[in-house]
């Protein structure tokens, strides 16, 4: 280069410029490296912690450790112990360690339908002492989509069994449906009896009213006939008494029917509420899963908003095709 610069003075200036450019480039590269290192927490003061699990599924080196949604650390390494347990080491930035007390636990959480897992620290009670380096924390897994689906299937099984058993018992000759049918027949019969009784009572009252009217008309003519009329009234009262007795029998019959209904309701009350409860929980789980799936990419993009569609033309109309 000096050889060239001795021939051309412009090359000496160029040499300085190239040197400056190279220095600036190296400086920028170093700065970027430092920034990345800071971002990665290489210079941060950290504390190493660990947890043990018997399944390393969804856990991998470098995965994030979070506290209340904040990234507070990273998974360092996974090793298989002599006793067969898997030990996982991770570090937490010391500035967040104040929030994690003794009694804290680590939970593996899945993000969305296809999302990666993260380790979430569930902080212990605030009155507990601080954690020390290399302390062993308890570990648990939150249900992922697969586990939720499995759980749903497991919870649906007893419901379906219950439905099958209940349906069978309902359809048996002495089952609930036949029982209800019998009760309904009793009701109908009772209704008919009551209707008949009402008509009978009305008839008796009308007849006796007529007789009483006649008796009263005649009372002015012949006082001695009053006794006879009174006797007739007595007969009418007796008949009314019989009618009242019949009404009492009917009320007893009603009471029996009501007792039957009570038994039917009581026998259903034992089995139906747990079924409904299970069904409600299962339906809610299913709705949550479907709702989450619908909101997750890429299913979200596959879901088309509903559109109003025109019915297909049928110029050989349904009316022509189906004789009424």
């Amino acid at each position: 280069m000096k050889l060239f610069s001795s021939h051309d003075s412009r090359l000496a200036v160029l040499e300085r410029k190239v040197g400056l450019f190279a220095f600036a480039g190296l400086g920028a590269l170093l700065l970027v490296f430092v920034i990345v290192a800071i971002e990665q927490g290489m210079f941060a003061s950290t504390t190493k912690l660990r947890f043990q699990t018997n399944d390393v599924g969804m856990i991998h080196e470098g995965m994030e450790v979070r506290l209340r949604g904040f990234k507070v650390g990273k998974l360092l390494g996974i090793s298989l112990k002599n006793d067969g347990a898997v030990e996982v080491q991770f570090f937490v930035d010391n500035k967040y360690l104040l929030h994690i007390r003794h009694g804290a636990k680590v939970r593996l959480v899945e993000q969305g339908l296809l999302g990666d897992g993260v380790l979430e620290i569930v902080p212990g009670p605030k009155d507990q002492p601080n954690l020390v380096a290399n302390e062993l924390l308890p570990f648990e897994r939150q249900f992922g989509m697969g586990e939720l689906a499995h759980e749903l299937v497991e919870r649906l099984k007893p419901i379906l069994d219950n439905v099958r058993v209940t349906t069978t018992s309902l359809n048996e000759p002495d089952g609930l449906i036949n029982h209800v049918k019998k009760v309904a027949v009793k009701f109908e019969k009772t209704g008919e009896d009551i209707s008949s009784l009402m008509q009978q009572t009305q008839g008796v009252i009308a007849e006796e009213n007529l007789k009483l009217g006649k008796a009263l008309d005649k009372s002015s003519e012949a006082v001695d006939k009053v006794g006879v009329a009174v006797d007739k009234v007595g007969v009418a009262v007796d008949k009314a008494g019989v009618a009242l007795d019949k009404a009492s029998i009917m009320i007893d019959s009603f009471h029996d029917v009501a007792q039957d209904v009570g038994k039917v309701t009581a026998s259903s009350a034992e089995s139906i509420p747990p079924m409904l409860q299970d069904g409600r929980v299962a339906a809610e789980d299913a709705r949550n899963i479907i709702s989450s799936a619908k909101d997750a990419w890429p299913i979200k993009n596959m879901m088309e908003p509903g559109e109003t569609i025109i019915l297909p033309m049928d110029s050989y109309g349904v009316t022509n095709a189906q004789p009424k």
């Binding site: 990419w297 890429p298 979200k300 993009n301 879901m303 088309e304 908003p305 509903g306 559109e307 109003t308």
Partner: peptide, 16 residues
């Protein structure tokens, strides 16, 4: 591929 379809307003959605 990543773009979400246009969201309908609630009335149009109800009518649909």
């Amino acid at each position: 591929c990543g773009s979400a379809p246009e969201k309908q307003n609630s009335r149009t959605e109800q009518a649909n």
